[in-house]
């Protein structure tokens, strides 16, 4: 008690300190995008694009495999950056749109598939590669992105971390889709969804611990 710093002293010493640098959210966003892109390029360089990519992308369902996660990432990343400002309110409801499209696609496919075939369609042929790739590709951007966000001032650390995880995981899934051959929504919505959910959870946990201030 006796060595209490008075508020006047504190103000004087804070005023004498150099001003912290201006927060540049777009720079952080760019680094996350860059890290996801590097991972995807590395993956595609070593394992190759799907041979029929150009043709496949003309099929709406196959295009959706890339477009849905891509739009999810495109919404989650700016939203994550916005949360770095204590007075900003990111439009989180936008995330519901791509999710709704995915769910609709999933249910429509399920309705058109004989019940006995559904489990087989969900399991597909490449679960392990799919899950490992999406999780592995998203890990570096999540860690670096969350660490960079420490410069910000999020009042919701878990949410910010989760959004970075979502953006990284969805970005990774969108890139992985260019390699993956299984075009059945029952497969890709399930497993991309789980991969993205894992990335989101990892981000949420990191954010919870790293983004407190």
């Amino acid at each position: 008690m006796s060595h209490r710093q008075t508020t006047e002293d504190l103000i004087a010493s804070l005023a004498a300190m150099p001003a912290p640098p201006r927060l540049r959210m777009s720079r952080i966003a760019l680094q996350i995008v860059g890290l996801v892109a590097i991972g995807i390029f590395a993956l595609l360089f070593t394992t190759g694009l799907r041979p029929d990519l150009a043709e496949a992308l003309t099929t709406p369902i196959t295009l959706a495999k890339t477009a849905i996660p891509l739009s999810l990432a495109a919404i989650a990343l700016p939203a994550a950056m916005l949360t770095a400002r204590p007075d900003a309110h990111p439009p989180l409801w936008l995330l519901a749109l791509p999710i709704a499209v995915a769910v609709a696609l999933y249910l429509a496919t399920m309705a058109g598939t004989p019940v006995s075939m559904i489990p087989q369609r969900i399991i597909g042929v490449s679960i392990a590669t799919c899950l490992t790739s999406i999780t592995a590709l998203s890990l570096t951007p999540i860690i670096v992105g969350t660490a960079l966000m420490r410069r910000g001032a999020t009042t919701r650390p878990t949410l910010t971390g989760a959004l970075i995880g979502l953006a990284s995981g969805a970005g990774a899934a969108a890139g992985y889709a260019l390699h993956c051959l299984d075009d059945n929504p029952l497969f890709f919505v399930t497993w991309y969804g789980i991969g993205i959910a894992i990335a989101t959870a990892v981000g949420a946990i990191l954010g919870r611990h790293w983004l407190r201030w």
């Binding site: 912290p20 640098p21 927060l23 400002r85 204590p86 007075d87 910000g152 001032a153 009042t155 201030w213």
Partner: peptide
């Protein structure tokens, strides 16, 4: 006050200070 100093880089110069300041204080 310390948080206001450490996080003042997150205030956008073209926005009013008050909502930012109150959000920091509330946090």
């Amino acid at each position: 006050l310390l948080a206001v100093h450490l996080k003042r880089g997150t205030w956008q110069g073209d926005r009013p200070v008050r909502p930012w300041l109150y959000a920091v204080a509330r946090h």
